[in-house]
Each structure stands twice: as C-alpha cells, then as structure tokens.
Design a protein around this nucleic acid. Structure first.
Lengths: 361, 361
DNA sequence: TGTTAGCACTCTATTAATTTGAGTGCTAAT
DNA sequence: ATTAGCACTCAAATTAATAGAGTGCTAACA
C-alpha cells in the first residue's frame, strides 16, 4: 500500500517501459527514462522496495524487473480512473479515432441485417487494429421477447417453425411429426402460439405454460407441447454459445505467449468456443466499470485456465433494449491497455449507435 | 520408372518406416526391417538408385533417406489400387470400424435437422480420431431447388423472407422496405413467388426472370424485383464459404509442421476460411478417384500455399440428390493415409446414408 | 555379376567449457 | 537521503570437443 509519489512514478515507468520493450527493465534505464533525476543506485533501492511489496519481480537475479499481476492491476486501475477524469473534462477528441471509426461505419452499412456478419467483421477488424486476438458473442437472445411465430408445413409431416424475436433475430427449427397436419389445424396452431407466446421471454415460457397450453387445446395437446419444445429448443439451444473469434494467430507475435505449448492450448480454447462462454457470461454478472461495462482480467484473474498468461479485456454492447452482447480482446499481459480500451469503446459505441440505445437519441 | 520389384519393396519399406517414426531411415534399418535378407550395403546401393530416380532424398549427407513428394505419390497410388482390389474381393470387414461408426451414428441421431451442428461435430470427431486437422464444407445449396418461399411482415416496412430449399435447408433474409405492405398484397406476393420460383435452382432464377416477373406484376414491379434480389442473396451469398474446421492445433503434434512459422500461417489460413474454398471447390471439378470422390494432394500439389508442407485428403459426400459437400483432412505429408482414407470413407458413408443416396437403398 | 564386409569420411546433435554483459546488492563516502 | 564504486551473479551467446549414425567406395567373395 502506502506507495509514496516517487515509488508510484518509478513503478509506472517500469511498467510503461516493459509494455513497450517486453524486456525486463533495469535501474539504469529508469534513471534515464524518467524525469526524476535520480541515480541508478537510488532507483535500485526503490525497486528493491517495490519488489518486496509485490509489484515487480525479477525473473532471475541479475535481471531487470518485470511487473507482477498486482503491479499491472495498480497501473490499470490508475489509468482507468485518470481516463475517466479526462472524459469528464471534455468529450474525447475524435481526431485519432476518425479513421478506424470510418472503417467500422462502412462495415456496418454494408450489411445491416446480417448481425452475424457484422459481428464477424467487427472481430476481424478489432484483431487487425490491435494485433491481439478478439472475440465477440452474439447478443443473448434468451432474455429477448418473442415477437412472432410461424408454422409451415414443408413436407408431409415436416413442420418448419420460424421464430422472430425482438430485435429481429430469426430462428428456424424443423419439427418431424408422425402425422400430416391439415391447413385448418395449422392455422389454428399458428393463431394459438402467436396469441399465447407473443411478448414472452424464454424464461417465461416455462413448464406451467406448456401444461396449460396442452390442456386447453384438447386433442391437440400432445402436438402443442411437441411444438412448444421445439420453440424453446430453437431459442435457447445453440444460442448461448455463439461466439466468433479472430486473430488467434496474433498470439504468435508475442514470444512470452507463443514460446511454450500454452500457445497451442490457447488456440485450442479459442476453437472450443464453449470455454469462452465462461469468459463472456461470467463477466456479464460482475460489476466491473459499471458505466462502460468494461472488465479487465489480468493473468491469474481470468476464469479461463489457458489464459493465465494473458490479459483479457471485455466490454458490453447493447444490441436492443435489454439485449446485451460481449466483445473482448485477448493479448499478453503487457498489452497496450490504452489502445485496447479505445478500440473497444469505439466498437461498442458504434454497435450501440447502430442497433441499441444510440438510435433513440 | 521401371522400378523392379526389389526397389519397390525397399521404397515401400522406407516410406512405411518413415511414416511411423518421422526420422530419416537408414540402410541398416531397412536391412533388418524387411524380409529381403539383404545386407545394408546392398540396400545402400539400391537406395542410391532410388535417390537418383527422385523417390527419396537425404536431408544431408550421412543421414538416412526421406521420401520425396514423388515417392509419396507412388506409395499412395499403389495403396489406392490395392485397396480397391481388396474391396472388390470382399466387403471390407467392419470390426475395426465398429467403434467409430457408433459414435458417428450417435452424433447423427442426436440432431437430425441441424445439419450445421452435425457437420461441426463430424469435423470435431474426425480431428479427434485422426489427430490431424479436419474441415467440412456445407453442402452447396446453389444447385439446390427452391421448395418454398414465405414472406411475412414483422415490423412496419420490415419483411422477413423465409426460404426452404430441397433438402430442407432453411434461409432467412430481412428486407427493409420504405413502405408498409397490406395483408392483401402480401398474400398475392407469396402466391406469386411460390408459383413462379418453385422447383427452380439459383442459376435458373436469373435476370430474365426478374424482368419478367416485374413486368407481370405491374405497379408492384419494383417491390417484386427488390424481393427477388433478397431471395437470390439469401440463397447464394454467404453460402459458398460455409466451412468448418476442427483440430487446428493438432498440427503442433508434428514437429515438421509446428517448427517453422508455417504453423502460424497454416492456422491463419484455417481461420480465414476463404482460402479453403479453393481447396474444396477446386477438387470438386477434378476427377480424383471417381468412384469414391477421394482426392489426395501431396505437398506441392495442394492449391493452398500455406499447406505446401502438408498432405490434404478430401472426399465428397452426397447430401441430397445432386447436392454435394466436401470433407477433408490436413496433416503432415507423413500422415497415416490408410487411417485417413478409412476415416473419410466412414464419414462420407454415414452422411450419404443419413441424407443422401443411401436412403434410397 | 550381384552381394557383402570393412573402412574412411561427413555431418548433425549433444555436451561441456568459456566468455560476455547486463544488472544487482552492498558499502562507504558525500 | 543520495550516490559512486566495486564485487558478485546469472543467462545467453560463443566456441570446442565428442559421439554416433549413416553414407560411399573398394576390394574380396560366391
């Protein structure tokens, strides 16, 4: 704790330097690098203190110092708070963002309705701009209200069920029946489902409702519950795990990640998107920076094992009222946090503006 | 050419041994390994010949021999032809396949309608079973007949267009209009599109038709052509590039691939699925083993640059009459071709049986 | 004439020994 | 409290030494 101003400054200098070079930084470097005008010997003493306090460490005797997770944490928190101040003071100047914003806008305009495509492109762009790995989750649809259901018979005994959710997310599910439905019944079913389910979320379509509906529809009871199951499956099923990643191979650019066989484990994780769900849903619950929805995990803090050597920054975007998605960056612990934060704010900003809250302004 | 029996046997032995060990194989090894009862010295002479002929080479003087692409080619072709004979002689014994077939069947049964899921799981299973990288392409839908179109108004001015193709492939496209459509018109449009387009393939829905339809529908002309565009977009657009990969990180298991920075390039390629299209569509045209649709690319033979150090084996599966998809394996040149061929035949067999030609038997 | 034993030679891989240099910790002087 | 100075440490790079696998060639052999 009680870090005096000078120690803070030195720590800051060590970290900044390490972010840039990726090499352990020594006392002489700091002595020149800062405006403190202290000799390397003094810096050495201070660094010894900082090490004892747990903010930095040396990979081996007679090497420079490297920040610990704790050190990074201090640095990042500090950065976040000063950034906030700056933001209060004045709307951030847009000059430096202009270019990437433009690309983003283009991506958005090109294909308005295909959210999936937009998000994929988004991930790609993020990865390219930052040189880290990016990941984006589809907006969680299960908190989304059902807007419209349509049953159509496409083959004998094959029912196509098309579902539209608030936010115009479309789902399809094919239902195999053991009998043919006549037009009359189909019409009735369509009416029934639309009337009953309209405006409900997945959670609200629960077992009680299934029982209820089945009862009310007499002889069709069984059929109704079968279809209801299909609807629930379609909305819920694969949806939670829809995650796109991009730039996985960027990790090869950072020796501390690509060296050991962790690299392979990391990429495996990215392939097995299931693991990533933790990352993105867990953090939905946690508070983080509540105003921006930004979460930073440093090293051991991440819930995913194969990323213990990385830092992960996630942000929330609002797709439609109450429907959130997550977007994140994975990189080495010595990532350029400033840049990453900017990039993420940019993207979420644009997404919000295109789909979510921004529209209403 | 003119490889006498003995040379052939030696070459075979060299390759087999190399496939197993991954190490250059020397004359002494062969002398013991084979039943030729020749001294290492004799083998050496023969190997010198084989090297001159271009079938093997040594990475450096005083190392054993390694097969060249040409060597592999001979080996593989030979294998293919003898396999075929065996197959003619007797239906292959199923004992050794039993287990993997079961898993596959389970995958299939679990989710019959979600082709996408099935294929993804398939790719995953293939990668796990072989320890190589697998890739699967969605069946090409653009040769597929249109079965059913449905237009629905979900918001003011927002039209949801649901399309069902032969084989029950479902597509959705959202159309943004600058005016509201009344029920009457919608009904008319639905009728019109279904009547006109039913049974046509993407190719057949061409410009002429667009003009025709627009003309015939008078004041609705503009609207009709707009919708038609959406339909074409929905069927054609992203569809050609739908490719799933799995087990990308398996390449780290093979030093000859993971060593250099080619590994990273390879994984990049897998990420950028566009490149893969070449691999899978090109080979649709080529003949390959015409009976099984199996294609083997060895090293330099592959059309994808980042795979020049690999071998790629692709197979065709029939999804529905005339609708094909591709499935492939990427591994080191010294992959276990036997195993890979078996695995692929298994999978395509199952797919055919579930969806395609097998059903009719 | 084809095969083989034997030997000199080549080249990689491994291990050991040496050198270099960055950086520290500590002490004594300012 | 700060600093100059010096001895010490350790990783990384360089060089040297050694071992071993495998070849090519020659001369002998059946």
């Amino acid at each position: 704790m009680e870090l005096d101003e000078r120690k803070k400054k030195i720590l800051q200098a060590v970290i900044k330097n390490y972010l840039e070079t990726g090499e352990p930084v020594g006392s002489r470097t700091i002595s020149k690098y800062t405006d403190l005008n202290l000799s390397s010997a003094t810096i050495r003493n201070e660094m010894a203190d900082l090490e004892e306090l747990g903010y930095i460490f040396q990979p081996h005797t007679s090497a420079g110092r490297i920040p610990t997770d704790m050190g990074y944490r201090l640095y990042v928190d500090d950065m976040l708070s000063t950034r906030e101040k700056e933001l209060d003071k004045k709307d951030r100047k847009l000059d430096d963002k202009a270019e990437s914003l433009k690309t983003m806008q283009e991506i958005m305009d090109k294909r308005v309705d295909r959210i999936e495509e937009v998000l994929k492109d988004m991930a790609k762009m993020l990865a390219n701009n930052t040189n880290y790995t990016s990941l984006v989750s589809m907006p969680q649809a299960n908190k989304n209200k059902l807007k419209f259901v349509q049953l159509t018979q496409v083959d004998e005994g094959k029912l196509l069920c098309t579902i539209v959710l608030e936010g115009n997310i479309v789902k399809n599910e094919m239902i195999q029946l053991d009998r043919v439905i006549d037009q009359q019944t189909l019409l009735k079913l369509n009416l029934l489902f639309n009337n009953t389910l309209n405006g409900l979320t997945l959670q609200e379509i629960n077992f009680d409702m299934a029982a209820n509906m089945a009862d009310q529809s007499g002889e069709l009871g069984e059929l109704v519950s079968e279809i209801l199951n299909a609807i629930v499956a379609a909305i819920g099923a694969a949806d939670g795990i829809e995650i796109f990643t991009s730039g996985a191979t960027n990790i090869f650019k950072y020796p501390e990640l690509s060296g050991n066989e962790n690299a392979s484990r990391l990429i495996s994780t990215l392939e097995e998107k299931e693991m990533l769900t933790n990352l993105l849903t867990d953090s939905l619950e946690e508070i983080g920076d509540s105003t921006t929805g930004i979460q930073i995990y440093i090293g051991e803090e991440t819930p995913v094992n194969s990323m213990k050597d990385c830092s992960v920054v996630t942000a929330t975007y609002e797709f439609e009222d109450g429907v959130y998605g997550k977007i994140g960056i994975i990189g080495p612990k010595r990532m350029d946090y400033e840049k990453v934060l900017d990039a993420l704010k940019n993207v979420t900003g644009s997404l919000d503006q295109k789909f979510g809250k921004g529209k209403k302004k």
